[in-house]
Design a protein around this nucleic acid. Structure first.
Length: 266
DNA sequence: AACAGCACCTGTAGGC
DNA sequence: TGCCTACAGGTGCTGT
């Protein structure tokens, strides 16, 4: 799942577990939790989930006593309220609540991670700002310095938290910036455009409940709609929506990058 | 310090 | 049908 809009969609549905007490936790794949499974279970059982939130691509579960649990889906993780047959083989962690509700952490590739943080810990150190305020984004971009390609910079979670491969490509297309452009060669107008487009792209995707390409599903195990509105991601060889030129695909930092050679000149 | 490369896993799609 | 390779919404470690 993965990027900010998908995580935000899930978090909004997770209000259903707020104020519920965790009655039982079962860890079926030890590497899914960043702690000895036994200790992890002990930390959670009997605790109430006061609130659910999000930072970047992380789901946050605020527990009593100010302890926090973070969930990162990486590539294929998801949290669902009901376990379907097709997910049976990929159930990694199960949470049972005292009112009879369940929450299942399902993850085909086992990259996802669930972490317990004590109340005195500084959670998610080094994570960048939430990318919704254009002025704040512009400020962050202006004080950032790098010779790296803009595509790589957008994927850097320590600058802006939550942008992934799909939305980075979409943002660059709408901003008219070639993904290989060195960050330190961006002009003021480019920075302003990025600051404007980043929140727009993310908010639109949130309103469409995220982008479902293969694995991402909401807690109710249904997909989002944003995949039907992508301008460049996954659109290789298809005509650009603005100029009809063929969308191209290159590899940058090991990630596929889609762009229109006409609308995003190098 | 920054960056490339690879590791972590499993499934799927496409070529032959 | 079957085998093989490439690739997938992400990060984190290691070596240069």
């Amino acid at each position: 799942m993965p990027e900010l809009p998908e995580v935000e969609t899930v978090v909004r549905e997770l209000v259903d577990i707020e104020n519920k007490k965790i009655k039982k936790v079962q860890v079926f794949n030890v590497s899914s939790v960043e702690m000895q499974a036994k200790a992890f279970v002990k930390k959670l059982v009997g605790k109430k989930v006061l609130k659910v939130g999000r930072r970047g691509k992380y789901v946050l579960l605020y527990l009593v006593d100010d302890d926090i649990v973070t969930v990162h889906f990486r590539m294929t993780g998801k949290l669902v309220f009901h376990l379907e047959n097709r997910d049976l083989n990929y159930l990694r962690v199960q949470f049972d609540f005292s009112d009879g509700a369940h929450l299942y952490f399902v993850d085909i590739r086992k990259f996802g991670r669930i972490k317990f943080w004590n109340s005195n810990e500084d959670i998610l150190p080094g994570l960048g700002i939430e990318p919704f305020n254009p002025q704040q984004i512009l400020r962050a971009l202006k004080q950032f310095s790098s010779k790296r390609e803009i595509k790589k910079v957008l994927l850097d979670q320590s600058l802006l938290a939550g942008i992934g491969n799909i939305y980075a490509d979409e943002v660059l297309f709408l901003s008219g910036i070639h993904p290989l452009t060195p960050f330190d060669q961006l002009e003021e107008i480019h920075m302003k455009e990025l600051s404007k487009q980043i929140p727009r792209v993310l908010n639109k995707a949130i309103n469409r409940m995220g982008t479902t390409l293969s694995d991402y599903r909401t807690t109710k195990n249904i997909g989002g709609e944003n995949q039907n509105y992508l301008k460049v991601y996954g659109q290789k060889d298809r005509p650009c929506t603005k100029c009809k030129r063929k969308i191209e695909k290159v590899v940058i930092g090991g990630r596929s990058s889609h762009f229109c050679p006409n609308c995003q000149p190098f």
